[in-house]
Amino acid sequence: MVTTTVECRKCGAPTAGTTYCHNCTTMTMNNLHSLAVGLPELRLIAARKASVTARQHGGGNRSVAPIPLNMAAFQLQSDIITFAGMLGQALTLHYNSHMPAESLLTAASKRTPALLQRRDAPSIISVARHYEHRLAMQLTPPEDRRMIGVCPVCERDLWCTDSEIAGQWVACTCGQALKVRDVQEQHLLTCALADGINSRGTAAGISKLLKVNGIDVKRWTISQWKKRGLLAAVGTQDGKPVYRVWDVWRLMNR
Score class of each variant (00 low, 15 high):
residue 170 V to H: 04
residue 133 H to R: 11
residue 213 N to Y: 01
residue 123 S to D: 08
residue 248 V to P: 04
residue 112 T to R: 14
residue 81 I to P: 01
residue 69 L to I: 04
residue 199 S to L: 11
residue 191 C to Y: 00
residue 214 G to W: 00
residue 227 K to T: 13
residue 180 V to C: 02
residue 74 F to T: 06
residue 74 F to W: 01
residue 203 A to E: 04
residue 173 T to I: 12
residue 107 A to V: 02
residue 78 S to H: 02
residue 169 W to N: 04
residue 48 R to F: 12
residue 149 G to Q: 05
residue 78 S to R: 10
residue 14 P to C: 03
residue 193 L to Q: 03
residue 250 R to T: 09
residue 206 I to P: 15
residue 86 M to N: 10
residue 5 T to I: 15
residue 51 S to L: 12
residue 30 N to S: 08
residue 144 D to K: 15
residue 217 V to R: 15
residue 63 S to C: 14
residue 145 R to W: 00
residue 167 G to Y: 00
residue 13 A to D: 08
residue 146 R to N: 04
residue 159 W to A: 02
residue 22 H to T: 05
residue 213 N to Q: 13
residue 182 D to H: 08
residue 187 H to S: 15
residue 202 T to M: 09
residue 52 V to N: 05
residue 95 Y to N: 14
residue 61 N to G: 03
residue 147 M to T: 06
residue 254 R to Y: 08
residue 227 K to E: 12
residue 61 N to K: 13
residue 35 L to Y: 03
residue 103 S to I: 07
residue 45 I to A: 09
residue 15 T to S: 11
residue 181 R to C: 07
residue 125 I to S: 01
residue 195 D to E: 15
residue 163 S to G: 00
residue 230 L to F: 06
residue 132 E to F: 02
residue 56 Q to E: 06
residue 201 G to L: 10
residue 196 G to W: 04
residue 160 C to L: 12
residue 227 K to A: 13
residue 118 R to S: 14
residue 97 S to M: 11
residue 11 C to Q: 05
residue 180 V to I: 03
residue 133 H to L: 03
residue 233 A to H: 04
residue 34 S to T: 07
residue 42 L to E: 01
residue 168 Q to V: 02
residue 65 A to R: 05
residue 25 T to W: 03
residue 144 D to M: 07
residue 28 T to W: 01
residue 231 L to S: 00
residue 186 Q to D: 15
residue 244 R to K: 10
residue 244 R to D: 05
residue 211 K to Q: 07
residue 33 H to P: 00
residue 22 H to F: 10
residue 132 E to C: 09
residue 214 G to V: 03
residue 7 E to R: 14
residue 101 A to H: 05
residue 116 L to N: 01
residue 65 A to Y: 03
residue 150 V to N: 08
residue 20 Y to P: 03
residue 168 Q to D: 12
residue 61 N to V: 14
residue 242 V to Q: 02
residue 106 T to R: 14
residue 64 V to C: 05
residue 36 A to I: 06
residue 126 S to A: 12
residue 197 I to Y: 03
residue 143 E to I: 07
residue 83 F to L: 02
residue 60 G to V: 01
residue 138 Q to A: 14
residue 195 D to S: 12
residue 208 K to H: 15
residue 192 A to T: 15
residue 205 G to D: 11
residue 187 H to A: 06
residue 3 T to A: 12
residue 142 P to M: 04
residue 29 M to Q: 15
residue 247 D to W: 05
residue 213 N to K: 07
residue 141 P to K: 07
residue 170 V to K: 00
residue 213 N to L: 06
residue 136 A to W: 09
residue 156 R to C: 04
residue 85 G to I: 08
residue 12 G to W: 13
residue 203 A to F: 04
residue 67 I to V: 14
residue 128 A to P: 05
residue 179 K to M: 04
